[in-house]
């Protein structure tokens, strides 16, 4: 792995085990992430974004198995690259990576904290788990963190319970907990999906500021291509457990290649649209089920460029358009 790489995922395959059956959920996914870089993984619900992100911290439920592939992560404690896939998910190593070097925030801020402990308790716990500090020191760090993420009156907030916080405030507190140990990687799994639009924007700005201040790398996961332009450097478009296009934000927005990417872009509401009275274009059909046996490119039933006997036979090979813009589609072969 090159020196400036924090994370490199190679040919990751994850399957769901149902009564000795195996259903592929993540298929041949590869991507990498430099120190301090922000990438976005975009795709409709059910395409495997959460599964991919949880695999990085080995948080997959028992029925999901990593079949093959590598997840190489530079651990600053060990000062070397570890293959996360090879770690024992109950072992010591993954436990000091989680929370300490990889912080995570989730889609549902309302239920990401336990309702029966104070916010301070749940943040201090993480700090004291990974750092040798006194209770009092941990509390002070928590108050500082709450201040950093923009919670008003952090001294009072630290002793409040989650139900006393609004959704936006809870997501801020969640971010405070995720960055409490200064992780080198922050995984944000649809952190704004459950929030009001105005709050969404605030959280995005906050994440951006924190990224600048602390310099951690971020994997930003969303189903809404509209929110990624602002925050990320590179974008990965995912469909049915496969990456179908990757490129810089500029490439993806101004020169999208895959029909699916184009569809996603047309589905973004823009303020201008109202005046122009341009219709939003929903994507035809639905995401197929993982149990549908689809050969070839999984998007072919919904694609207007569908080429029979081609798209539905084999998955296309990767086509490098430029050094970092690639697409997997027969239109470009």
């Amino acid at each position: 792995m090159p020196k400036d790489m924090l994370l490199e995922i190679k040919d990751l395959e994850i399957s769901l085990l149902v009564e000795s059956h195996m259903v592929n959920i993540i298929d041949n996914v590869s991507f990498d992430l430099k120190f301090g870089e922000v990438i976005a993984i975009v795709g409709e619900s059910g395409c495997g974004k959460t599964v991919t992100s949880q695999a990085i911290a080995r948080l997959l439920p028992r029925e999901l198995k990593i079949l093959s592939g590598k997840i190489l992560f530079y651990s600053k404690i060990d000062e070397r690259v570890l293959d996360v896939c090879k770690l024992d998910p109950k072992g010591k190593t993954i436990h000091y990576i989680r929370g300490d070097q990889i912080g995570m925030i989730f889609q549902e801020p309302m239920s990401s904290f336990s309702p029966v402990y104070t916010i301070g308790n749940q943040i201090c716990e993480v700090i004291r788990l990974h750092q040798k500090v006194s209770k009092k020191k941990a509390r002070n760090i928590s108050i500082e963190l709450l201040d950093t993420v923009g919670i008003p009156n952090p001294v009072a907030a630290v002793d409040q319970y989650p139900h006393e916080f609004s959704g936006g405030m809870r997501q801020r507190a969640m971010i405070a907990r995720a960055i409490s140990c200064n992780p080198s990687l922050l995984i944000a799994d649809e952190p704004t999906t459950a929030l009001d639009v105005t709050i969404q924007a605030q959280i995005l700005v906050l994440l951006q500021e924190l990224q600048k201040e602390f310099g951690m790398a971020i994997i930003f996961i969303t189903h809404d291509l509209g929110v990624v332009a602002q925050i990320s450097h590179r974008v990965f478009i995912m469909y049915m457990g496969k990456i179908v296009e990757e490129g810089s934000v500029h490439d993806i927005f101004h020169n999208p290649k895959h029909p699916y990417t184009e569809n996603l872009i047309h589905a973004i509401p823009k303020l201008g649209n109202l005046r122009e009275r341009r219709r939003l274009v929903p994507i035809r059909g639905n995401v197929p089920s993982i149990f549908d046996e689809l050969h070839g490119c999984a998007f072919h039933p919904r694609c207007k460029f569908f080429m029979p006997d081609k798209c539905d036979v084999h998955f296309p090979k990767c086509k490098h358009l430029t050094s970092n813009h690639s697409v997997w589609c027969y239109l470009y072969e």
């Binding site: 949880q54 911290a57 948080l59 109950k90 436990h95 000091y96 990576i97 989680r98 929370g99 300490d100 990889i102 912080g103 995570m104 989730f106 889609q107 549902e108 239920s111 990401s112 904290f113 336990s114 309702p115 029966v116 402990y117 716990e125 993480v126 788990l129 990974h130 969640m174 907990r177 995720a178």
Partner: peptide, 26 residues
């Protein structure tokens, strides 16, 4: 199955402590 369980796991808490402190307590 609640979100706070996986969130607590993601902090690096050992499985036993996580179980006792979070879901069992509720």
């Amino acid at each position: 199955n609640k979100m706070y369980v996986i969130a607590a796991r993601s902090t690096g808490l050992s499985e036993f402590r996580m179980l006792m402190k979070y879901p069992v307590r509720i």
